[in-house]
Amino acid sequence: MDATDGPPVLKLGVSDAIAGLALSTEAHWNQTEEDWRVFLHDGIVFGIRDGMRLVATAALLPYSSNNAWISMVLVSATHRRRGFATRLVDACLETARKNGLTSWLDATPDGAAVYGPLGFTPTLQLRRLKLAKSKSSSGPAPAAATLEALRARDRRATGFDRTALLTAFAQRSGSRIAAANGCIALVRDGRIARHIGPLFADHAAEALALVDAIAQSETRPLLLDAVASQGAFLDGLTAAGWTIERPFQRMRFGPATIAAEDTPFAVAGPEFG
């Protein structure tokens, strides 16, 4: 079958959030309906339907300085190996090209092998870690911090202005911005686990102390997407009982447009950057 054959690529709307959630749930991902609404409201989500059923998606989420994130590349198990993911990623890249955007994504090892030949350049690496929680909280919550403080650190580390995204995260029920000793992190709900990130700090020891304080005040499982080059931080997490679930390779398509001032210890997630 030719790559252009088959059902058409469509632009999805906010009303497709539940259908998108069904796809990410099938893949055992951590996104919530609120996450899908961010992509559908603030970005462009392409999809393919089989009749009325949504069977494949890919999202392009614009940020500042002519940058955008590609994510939510999902195909139902019943419709794989038909070229749907390639068509949807191509739609994202073409939209980014028309709008003069540099595209970024966080790829699994299998995905990186696909995206590399398309012209994506590897940048930093990530490690997703999980901490299982099976007992009641045993410690006080760390101090709260302001959204403005988080936004400022986020821009220094990413080069992007992600005020809209961070505001959406912070305003959700159950979200909090925690801080201690110059460190700051966002904690939010996910479908199967709470997520810590982004997380910014000046030193690994302080970052580890903040993560430990957060963990001691939580009861649900926790996920964290650590920057692999923060070796002391990664070592400290695994020593504290966190387990590495999978790696991700951050990749860029197009010219570099930003100059980050520092490196985060953990990111907002492979779907958000």
Rank of each mutant, 00 (worst) to 15 (best):
R128L: 12
T158P: 08
D154F: 11
D154W: 08
T158L: 04
R127I: 14
L124I: 15
A152M: 07
R151Y: 04
A143E: 04
S134C: 12
R156N: 09
P140D: 04
A152S: 12
T163F: 01
A157M: 05
T158A: 06
K130D: 08
T163N: 06
P140W: 00
S136R: 12
D161R: 06
Q125K: 15
P142Y: 02
T163P: 01
D161Y: 03
R156C: 10
P142D: 04
F160G: 00
L124Q: 12
A141Y: 06
T163W: 05
A152W: 01
A141C: 12
K135H: 11
A145S: 14
L129Q: 09
S137W: 01
A145K: 03
Q125P: 12
L129F: 13
G139Y: 06
S134N: 13
A145T: 05
S138P: 00
A143F: 06
S134P: 00
F160Y: 04
A143I: 04
P142T: 02
G159D: 02
A145Q: 06
T146I: 08
K130G: 09
T146G: 06
S137Y: 04
A157D: 10
L129Y: 06
L129G: 01
P142G: 07
T158Q: 03
R155G: 10
S138F: 10
K133I: 02
E148P: 03
R155E: 05
L147R: 09
R151I: 13
R162V: 02
A132L: 15
Q125A: 15
T158V: 10
A132N: 14
L131G: 11
A132Q: 15
S136A: 14
K133P: 05
R156E: 13
A143D: 03
A143C: 09
R127N: 14
S137Q: 07
L126F: 15
A152K: 12
A143H: 06
P140F: 01
R127P: 09
S136P: 11
L129C: 13
R162H: 05
Q125V: 06
R127Y: 12
A141Q: 09
L150Q: 05
A152V: 09
A141G: 11
R151F: 06
K130L: 13
T146A: 05
G159A: 04
R153S: 02
L129T: 01
P142K: 02
G139T: 04
L124Y: 15
S136D: 11
E148Q: 07
L124D: 10
L129A: 11
E148G: 04
R151N: 12
F160R: 07
G159H: 00
D161H: 11
A149T: 15
L124S: 13
S134H: 10
F160M: 10
R127A: 15
A144L: 05
A132R: 15
T163Q: 01
S137E: 01
A149P: 12
A132H: 15
F160A: 03
T163C: 05
G139W: 01
